[in-house]
Design a protein around this nucleic acid. Structure first.
Lengths: 339, 339
DNA sequence: TTGTATGCGTTATCAG
DNA sequence: CTGATAACGCATACAA
């Protein structure tokens, strides 16, 4: 066990000899071929265990022209990606699902890819497939990946990146609706929102869900402020909203970070949460639990999204037909104190 | 399957033919061998460029018995690791330095490794070396890595993990002392700390520095809380400290993330920073500037640490003699508003 | 069901 | 300095 160092790692050959069969048979057993006699399978497995045989990845890859590894392509600063709790969780999901497979994850960062090193890596046959996350417009070089290997995007990519991509995403309209309907269910009747930027689909879609829910309930949906997904932005939007709509009793904020700002602004004016104004945030980020009052918020199942992304890619790698391109996962409401 | 219009990816063979030389010569050029005639080198490089030749990793690995990939081993929950700005920055440094080399990073997560899959992976000759981060005591299985491939630890590992490890670390005792002496210099006399976990050397050492500084100054060092390096953990520890030691006027928190939690807890109780309590954090993470008051903090050159970790490993892989085991990088104090 | 033979793309060891 | 020619460890048509 500990004496492996110094000795050569055992090969198929060695296992074959120990089990009294040919290399080919051992290979079949290792790869789970159904057409090997039961006793033989056992004998081989015993030999494998005794010798501590581990297949040589390179040799296997060379012979089969499959690498058994997939690229996790991050087209920007690592710290930007991993510093985001959402992606941390997403990656957890990725890894969990991948752990059950034979695949290994290669971390490929391409923050600035002048010589297209990352693209060449992926196209160079070093991986069987790729998962792309945290992509924005401006990352058009990603278009060169598809056609080389199967690619699945975490989040729907911009049109310039792919025309018919495989991707996993949440339904932001449904999320906005979910939050707003919760407020309505609580009996709130004058509900406002602090929406995200008007040039981001996440912002636009959540606002659309907000409006749809209020329309369906026959309630006014005119109390709309906009923030830039930051805490100060949320505070400022809150102040403006309070000036123009002092009677609001419910609030949907399109991000938890903005919600923390809004909470500060409310506290300053002596408005209590949730007694006077009930609040629902979005993201279920760590910030949702930092404050005095826990923030009720819309949770994106980031871990599930990571797992789903892997599932889609594995199906593609398996050559399954009719794998859906758009994979939408549901959002859920996490109830805390604020609503 | 390369979909490059049905063409096979060009091989050494193809390049050799195009350049009118042998495969061996092309191989030499690719690997930068010095004993190839200048003109020949040029001719070969031209052919390589024209054909878009990329070396086949598997074949190269099989022939040379080197994989050109190294494992980034994370022995715990991914989200715990990547959610921490320190590690995000560390990984940035890793990647930056690695980008200049021929090596690729394999992300290996082993949060719970019942069947030792991660260990088998590393020992199975799938990587040339490993970088281990975020290790705690309880991760004794990591001991099985050394002896198989060179291993470098980000942060000094516990004794149970390795007896004579290669590692990169900051002097955490000095860092804790630095922070505490700053508070003393500010005239604070009742100084508390929120330390890290007792099973991580970073936590233990910073606490030791805290105690040493107070002892030297003849001040009490009994106000000690413990957190798990997360914001909620910091908030909870802060609340406990305030209950047991309501008179504290200075606080050293062993991580910025915990400090943000502590700040929230203080704000809730109406305690002003730095007027009532001066605070020094640790990490100089982005979180240090997120809040209302900028956090004075001990800066770990985390990105440099990541880069250094790679450097050490590459030297080991290169077979350099006399590579130092302990690689200590200095900490500095970054002054902001909180102290 | 099992064994044999061949090839995967490079590196490395020889001669020359 | 350059060119043949073995390995490298495995998968897989093809035979048996």
């Amino acid at each position: 066990m500990n004496t492996i160092a110094g000795h050569h790692a055992p090969t198929l050959e060695a296992v074959a000899e120990a089990a009294g069969v040919s290399r080919a048979t051992v290979s079949r057993v290792v790869n789970g071929s159904p057409r090997v006699r039961g006793e033989v399978v056992e004998a081989v497995q015993k030999a494998i265990a005794e010798l501590g045989y581990v297949p040589n990845r390179a040799a296997r890859s060379l012979a089969s022209s499959r690498t058994h590894s997939i690229a996790l392509l991050v087209p920007e600063e690592v710290s930007r990606f991993f510093g985001d709790p959402y992606f941390a969780s997403f990656t957890t999901g990725l890894d969990r699902r991948l752990a059950d497979s034979e695949y290994v994850l290669n971390l490929v960062v391409a923050r600035d890819d002048p010589d297209r090193k990352a693209v060449r890596y992926v196209r160079g046959g070093n991986v069987d497939g790729a998962i792309v996350v945290s992509h924005h417009s401006g990352h058009e070089f990603l278009a060169q990946l598809e056609g080389a290997v199967p690619v699945v995007f975490g989040g729907r990519p911009e049109a310039g990146i792919s025309t018919d991509p495989y991707y996993v995403d949440v339904d932001n309209v449904a999320g906005g609706r979910l939050a707003t309907e919760h407020l309505i269910g609580l009996g709130r009747r004058r509900i406002a929102t602090i929406a995200g930027p008007e040039d981001m689909s996440a912002g636009v879609d959540r606002l659309a869900g907000f409006r749809a829910a209020l329309d369906d309930a026959g309630l006014p949906s005119d109390a709309v402020g906009h923030g830039n997904f930051t805490a100060p932005g949320g505070a400022e939007a809150m102040r403006r909203l309070l000036d123009t709509h002092p009677d609001i009793d419910g609030l949907f904020v399109a991000s938890d970070l903005m919600a923390t700002g809004a909470l500060g602004a409310l506290a300053t004016r002596g408005i209590r949460v949730p007694e006077d104004v009930a609040i629902v945030g979005y993201d279920d980020s760590p910030a949702a639990t930092w404050g005095e009052v826990g923030l009720t918020t819309v949770s994106q199942p980031s871990e599930l999204m990571g797992a789903t992304t892997v599932d889609v890619l594995l199906r593609l790698l398996r050559g399954e037909p009719d794998v859906p391109h758009a994979n939408i996962v549901p959002t859920t409401l996490v109830r805390r104190d604020s609503a």
